[in-house]
């Protein structure tokens, strides 16, 4: 059965590595639903979070291939239940609409969103949350005509008490030291 999985990859920060990672998805015809890459807590190490909708068997084999990439430090996957995750969305609405009624303000309050910037022509609203939540706010605001909308890829952390990578890097050092 297909379901959402979150693939986390820790890698060196090298040119072309994103390509080397994504060709593994392409080759197996697995769609990337969302992708975020940025510096991790450890200097020089990048963290990818890739969301796919696939069977666990396919995801497990895919992650095995990703983990094998020379410049990848570690790849693993989690279900949504195993992680805490967020996405961020920005909405641009006409400022007129904000003044004509208090509906937008109510929507913003109810959704736990915030207003970032108000100009004469437009107002920018920001909301973090799961996709359904940011999507719901979009539908509501769109009654007033959303002029621009953007949603980020997913960011996530595991429910483990520590970053798995630091633990992992220690183990890796021990392993590399022990193999003759």
């Amino acid at each position: 059965m297909k379901q959402e999985f979150n693939i986390t990859i820790f890698s060196e920060n090298y040119i072309g590595l994103l390509n080397r990672i994504t060709i593994n998805f392409t080759r197996r015809k697995i769609n990337i639903e969302s992708l975020t890459v940025s510096a991790s807590a450890i200097q020089g190490v990048s963290k990818f979070i890739i969301v796919v909708n696939e069977t666990e068997d396919k995801v497990r084999k895919l992650v095995g291939q990703l983990d094998k990439i020379v410049d990848v430090l570690k790849a693993f996957y989690n279900t949504n239940e195993e992680i805490i995750y967020e996405e961020i969305a920005l909405y641009k609405v006409p400022t007129d609409a904000l003044y004509e009624s208090d509906q937008i303000e109510k929507m913003v309050r109810k959704a736990g969103a915030r207003i970032m910037e108000i100009t004469r022509e437009y107002t920018v609203i920001e909301k973090t949350g799961h996709k359904e939540e940011t999507q719901a706010l979009f539908e509501e605001l769109n009654q007033f005509g959303v002029m621009q909308f953007v949603r980020s890829g997913r960011i996530a952390i595991t429910r483990d008490p520590i970053e798995r990578l630091s633990e992992f890097l220690k183990e890796r050092d021990a392993l590399l030291g022990s193999i003759d």
């Binding site: 020379v70 410049d71 890097l169 890796r172 590399l176 022990s178 193999i179």
Partner: peptide
């Protein structure tokens, strides 16, 4: 002789 992101053999 070693690359930290690469395991050439396992114990």
């Amino acid at each position: 002789t070693k690359i930290r992101s690469y395991i050439r053999d396992y114990q």
